[in-house]
Simulated scan of single mutants.
Amino acid sequence: MPIQQIVLHPTVDRSLKYASTTVGRDKVYRAVQYFARFLAWYLKRQDYNNKEIIQRLSNLKSALGLSRKLMRLGKSMEHLQHATKALNVEDEFAKYVTIGRQLGYAVYLFWDTFSWVHSAGVYKFQQIKRINENAYKAWLMGLLFSIIHGLYKLHQINSQRGSLISKAKIAETSERSKDTATLKKERKAAIRQLIQDVLDCSIPATALGYIHLEDGLVGLTGFITSIMGAQSQWKKVNGP
């Protein structure tokens, strides 16, 4: 039966497996949220006559943003656990930047909880503006530490790769070729994460007024990094 073939298709199975993860769903919601933000800005900029469509896109953006905040409740504890585990890292520099990154994300999600409470109407905070600013500052701090860690990791990978290439010229072995391929893969992943972090920095930096980007550009940036994150999560769940 055609319906059975569609329902039982491997792609559907992998999609369901991906959607069963909280991170997977969050990346999809985030992509739609930021694309709606970009599209609403674009239509408004083009003087689109149907104002109702623009309002619907804005409502969609707000609804998804609120839903994602709810999904993140309690996630700050996960980052605190990662920060605690990082204490066992032998590399001192990597240890402290990892702790800084995880603490930044943990504090961001802590303040983000209050933001959800306010936005959901559970309780209205008079200092909601300051709460949101604290959240954005913590998010930006986490991203900056992540960028520093990414640059440091790239430096380490390049050093190891250079050493392996030099040794390979002297004695070519399958083991060294395998190590070189592994480092190449790690380098590609590190560069990808670095690009994602740099792009994501524009979101809290714009919200805090440190840089001035148009709403559409922020939306487009968020959409791009969401797709990048979704691809990474897909590979993590379903393999390459």
Rank of each mutant, 00 (worst) to 15 (best):
A83G: 04
Q160P: 03
G229H: 00
K153V: 05
R192D: 07
L140E: 05
S146L: 05
R72D: 12
V117T: 12
G65H: 10
W111T: 00
I211P: 06
S163F: 10
S163I: 07
A83Q: 02
P2K: 10
L64V: 03
P2M: 10
K61Y: 09
Y18A: 00
A36W: 05
V237D: 11
K184W: 11
Y105P: 01
K169G: 07
R37T: 11
H155E: 06
G150L: 01
G162I: 03
T11H: 14
F93G: 07
S159N: 05
R25T: 12
G239R: 04
I195T: 13
A94V: 10
Y136A: 13
I131H: 02
P240Y: 07
T113L: 09
E78K: 11
L144A: 09
S146G: 12
T221V: 15
M1G: 14
I53E: 03
K95E: 06
D13N: 12
R161M: 12
S119R: 11
K188D: 10
R101A: 07
I195R: 10
D91M: 11
I224D: 10
M77Y: 11
I3P: 08
W116C: 15
I165P: 00
K185Y: 02
L57M: 12
G104R: 09
D200Y: 00
R176Q: 05
R25M: 15
L154H: 10
L39Y: 07
A83P: 06
